[in-house]
Simulated assay, not measured.
Amino acid sequence: MYLIMSKNGQIRIPKKIQKQLNLIEGQYLFVYESKNCIMIEKHHEDETLNQCLFTNGKITIPMELRRLCNINVREMFSIEVSCNKIILKKRN
């Protein structure tokens, strides 16, 4: 499955994944970079990581992560779920 990031850095999380991970509207999710991927998860031991609000089925990827990962407007990503994490990989 592929997703496109909006010009504002937003990604829409598919309903199937929202239900699978029990994501709740208004919940804060941890968003960070690992191995050149964007990771999104509900719980993380490092409380200093970026936390972004999940609203309207979307989450905004912080600008510093977009710069770090060299993500451009309208970038396309593959989306996977593994170990209760959402993994976004840039499509080459």
Rank of each mutant, 00 (worst) to 15 (best):
S82V: 08
T48H: 07
L3Q: 10
L88Y: 08
L3Y: 06
E45K: 01
C83L: 11
L65C: 00
R91I: 09
T48S: 11
P14C: 13
S6R: 01
R67T: 11
E64R: 13
F77Q: 12
I59M: 14
L29W: 06
L53G: 05
L65Y: 02
I86R: 12
K42M: 11
E80F: 09
G57E: 01
Y2K: 12
Y28K: 15
E33R: 04
C83R: 10
S82R: 13
K89V: 00
S82Y: 07
K15S: 12
Q27S: 02
C37R: 03
L68I: 00
M76R: 15
G26C: 11
L23H: 14
V81F: 05
C83E: 10
M63A: 13
E80P: 07
Q20H: 14
L21A: 12
N84W: 05
H43Y: 08
V73E: 05
T60P: 05
C69W: 01
L88N: 08
V31A: 02
C52R: 15
H44Y: 12
E41D: 04
M63Y: 15
I4H: 12
E64Q: 13
N70F: 01
K58W: 07
I11T: 11
N92D: 09
E47D: 07
K35E: 10
K7Y: 07
T48A: 07
S78T: 01
L3C: 11
L68Q: 05
D46M: 02
Y32H: 00
M1T: 10
N70K: 00
Y2Q: 15
K58M: 14
L23D: 13
H43T: 04
N84D: 08
N84M: 07
I61S: 03
G9W: 02
K35L: 09
M76S: 14
L29D: 03
V31K: 02
E47H: 08
N50R: 13
L21K: 15
